[in-house]
Each structure stands twice: as structure tokens, then as C-alpha cells.
């Protein structure tokens, strides 16, 4: 193994920080959502975290509380000649800006250092088991992700990485070491189905499943079940076998598709019934998965 250079004091693009959640890993965890994702899942529940803001300025007039201003700006990163500024103190969290955005982005994502993220948790810290870094896709900002995991761990808050698995974690040993564990989405086992569902290949995802499971770093694998969109049985069976083969203690969470937050054109995707979910859970258990959760 070659020693990695110390990461630059990276600043991350942070979409949002949820100070306390009981459904993003064990115990209470602060969830740090990073902005930007390389998948385009039909059922994406927070599409406003997909793209980085290009400062087109279209959201500013939609803001009812004067929290957004578009000022003239120059430079290659400001192709529209504008810079959108967000005033958190005036924001009423109404969602009008992300509804107005045509690029699956948000003007509320901010650049932060790892230390700033940890400091922002303030008084909540004593009430947390750790943090979970999510997205967007947090693996797209590996230097920042690593520095955040290190800073958070130093503050007594071990970090879980909630990822779509597109980043090759085997090539990022320091990041993997700094993480308490990973929560990996396996959206479909078949590559073509995966591409149809997300617009991307799943080869890296499956490689990460095997790598993280064997490394003992896998806390949880998740599959969102959407009837008719992919072969859920095969996916559940293959994921289960991969977990069992590697002796992983990870739990497998089977998630029912729900339309809340999903973009309008995909909101009508079918919701699986209880029997479907129970049968998939039984399948995973029969394959030998230690813990199966249906939500």
C-alpha cells in the first residue's frame, strides 16, 4: 500500500445538515447531505441534491422571503454572469427555490470545511452516536469526505458513509479506515436494469459490495423495491449471497418505494404490497442474511 498524501484542507459542498436523525444508522446521528450525484434514479427522493448550482439566478424571484439574491458576478464559474446568495436567517424552508430550479439543484448548498460541519452540530453533539454522510452522493467529494470523517471521529462522533457505491473505495484506504462503516445502495443486480433505473452502470457498486463486506466495513445494504422496474428477487438473492459469502454481519434493509419527494413524472411508479416485501425478506433470510429489515 502506498501512503496517500494528506488531503488538501478540502471544503465540501454541503446541501443540508440534519442535526438529529434516528433512521440513518444506529442511534441518533447528524446527517450531512453533500451536494451532487452521478446517478439519476427514477425514484430519487431528494432530486434537489443531484446537481451543483450554476448560479443561473432563476430561483431568486421565486423566493417569498427575500432569502435569495442574484448579484452580478464574473468568471468561468459564473457562466450566467450572476451569483446567487442565500441568507439562511431569512429562509423559511418553503421549498420554492428547489421547485423553481430546472437543474435538480439548490441555491442553499454551501461550501464548508469539515471543522465547520462538526462545529455546526453544537449542543446536539452530546445526544449523538455519530454522523452519517449522505447526499447527493458523498463519494464524489472523497477528499472532503475523508477530512469530515477524520474530524468527526476526533470529536467523538464516528461517521457512517451512505453511498450509491459509484466511487471505488478500494482505492481510498484512508477514507475507508476513517469511516465507522458504509451503508451501500444496491439498486439492481442486472447491469442493464441498473442503467435503466439510474442511468449508470453498477459494476463499481457490486465491486464495492464485495470489497466493503470483506473488509468488515459494511454496516447496511439497501435496495428500494419498485415492482416492474427491475428483478427484485434476483437482486435480493445475489446481494444476500454476497453478504453471506464474505461473512459480513451487515444488515439488509429492503425499502418500499414511496412517492413522497419524488419528481412529478415518476411519482406514479407502483408501490410494492406487504406480501411482496415479506417474500423478499424471507428470501434474504433463507439465504442466510443475519438481519433483514423492511421499511
Amino acid at each position: 500500500m502506498t501512503a496517500r498524501a494528506a488531503p488538501a484542507p478540502a471544503r465540501g459542498v454541503v446541501a443540508r445538515i440534519l442535526p438529529r436523525s434516528a433512521v440513518d444508522g444506529p442511534g441518533n446521528r447528524a446527517v450531512v447531505f453533500l451536494q451532487g450525484c452521478d446517478f439519476d434514479c427514477l425514484y430519487c427522493h431528494n432530486p434537489e441534491t443531484r446537481a451543483l448550482c450554476v448560479h443561473c439566478g432563476e430561483c431568486a424571484p421565486a423566493c417569498p422571503s427575500g432569502a435569495l439574491t442574484a448579484r452580478p458576478a464574473a468568471g468561468p464559474e459564473r457562466p450566467f454572469g450572476l451569483e446567487v446568495a442565500w441568507d439562511a436567517t431569512r429562509c423559511v424552508d418553503c421549498g420554492a427555490c428547489v421547485a423553481a430550479c430546472r437543474r435538480d439543484s439548490s441555491p442553499k448548498a454551501v461550501a464548508m470545511s469539515a471543522e465547520e460541519v462538526v462545529a455546526s452540530l453544537g449542543r446536539q453533539r452530546a445526544f449523538l452516536s455519530g454522523i452519517t454522510v449522505s447526499g447527493g452522493e458523498c463519494g464524489l467529494q472523497p477528499a472532503f469526505l475523508e477530512s469530515l470523517l477524520v474530524a468527526s471521529r476526533a470529536a467523538g462522533l464516528p461517521g457512517l458513509v451512505d453511498t450509491n457505491g459509484s466511487t471505488d473505495y478500494a482505492a481510498l484506504p484512508a477514507l475507508v479506515e476513517a469511516a465507522e462503516g458504509f451503508m451501500l445502495d444496491v439498486k439492481a443486480w442486472d447491469e442493464d436494469e441498473h442503467r435503466a433505473l439510474t442511468g449508470a452502470s453498477n459494476r463499481a457498486v457490486i465491486a464495492n459490495l464485495r470489497f466493503l463486506a470483506a473488509a468488515g466495513k459494511l454496516y447496511e445494504v439497501r435496495t428500494v423495491v419498485v415492482p416492474g422496474s427491475f428483478d427484485a428477487e434476483r437482486t435480493v438473492r445475489e446481494v444476500s449471497r454476497a453478504l453471506v459469502d464474505s461473512g459480513s454481519a451487515a444488515r439488509y434493509k429492503l425499502i418500499r418505494f414511496r412517492p413522497q419527494g419524488v419528481r412529478a413524472r415518476w411519482r406514479g411508479l407502483p408501490v410494492p404490497d406487504d406480501d411482496t416485501m415479506a417474500a423478499l425478506a424471507a428470501l434474504a433470510r433463507a439465504e442466510g442474511v443475519r438481519e433483514v429489515v423492511v421499511v
Binding site: 434516528a22 433512521v23 442511534g27 441518533n28 452530546a126 445526544f127 449523538l128 452516536s129 429489515v293
Partner: peptide, 20 residues
């Protein structure tokens, strides 16, 4: 009722509360 699936959450609340 969903809190039952994550009892460690309650322990976190207790520990944080006692810290305060």
C-alpha cells in the same frame, strides 16, 4: 412507535441529557 427499531437512539438521548 418506529423508535422501537432503534433503541440506541433512546440511550443517546439519555446520555446527552445526563451530560447536560
Amino acid at each position: 412507535p418506529t423508535a422501537k427499531s432503534n433503541p440506541r437512539q433512546l440511550l443517546d438521548i439519555v446520555r446527552g441529557g445526563f451530560t447536560h
